[in-house]
Amino acid sequence: MWRGTHLTLNALAVIRGERPLIGGLSVDLSGGDAVALVGPNGSGKTSLLRVLAGLAEPAAGTISLQVDGVSADTPRAAMVHLGGHLDGLKGALTVAENLAFWVRYFGAGPGALSAPDALETLGIGHALNLPAAVLSQGQKRRVALARLLVAPRPVWLLDEPTAALDVASAARFTELVEAHRSQGGIVVAATHAPLALQTLKTLDLATYPPRGPDSEPGEAEGLATALSGDEYWLEGRSA
């Protein structure tokens, strides 16, 4: 569905408040890649996802996201989905109303599933006309994930996507991620739980400590070894 998806981070530094979290992060992702962001609590996983989504500015470095057929002027925020800790559902509205709002707000686009189909895919088709307030935590999370299907976007930025999901739902989620990758999308997920994805790359934020602008150029070589798995997606950039 998407061609030529490229997400490039160049010497990215992330600061939350006054506290530097990440420094010198250079990564080149293309369509089909899936990355698991790991690191201890407070290592900057959520902050990095917010920066990638365009909600916060990086302290240094650049991010570029290109998708064939999408104007280069399109802000990054309009090309990504962010799945946060919170599900963004309005309890007073039904599940159908919640999803219908996001479809209208984001625009459905090509390849979009209808709300009932998306919910069925996630195994909660029966919840369509229930108020979101009565759903359990796991059901709410699945409705939030349905948002990714009713308004397709090339890049998924997910924060603990499988938290609160049971084993069967987590397996369904894995299938969705694989389907998204096979359509040329990119998935970046911050997670503590292991994800059973094929050729999953792991990015350990603990290996990108914040550093000053006058850091040694030799540090860039260390980046490649910090990444486990294949390196086909990584272009080691020396500073």
Binding site: R50, A53, G54, L55, T74, P75, A77, A78, V80, H81, L82, G84, H85, L86, D87, G88, L89, K90, G91, W102, Y105, F106, R147
Partner: peptide
């Protein structure tokens, strides 16, 4: 903001 929708609402052009 409390239910996380504020972040999502900002994801537009």
């Amino acid at each position: 903001r409390d239910d996380g929708a504020l972040d999502l609402l900002r994801l537009t052009d």
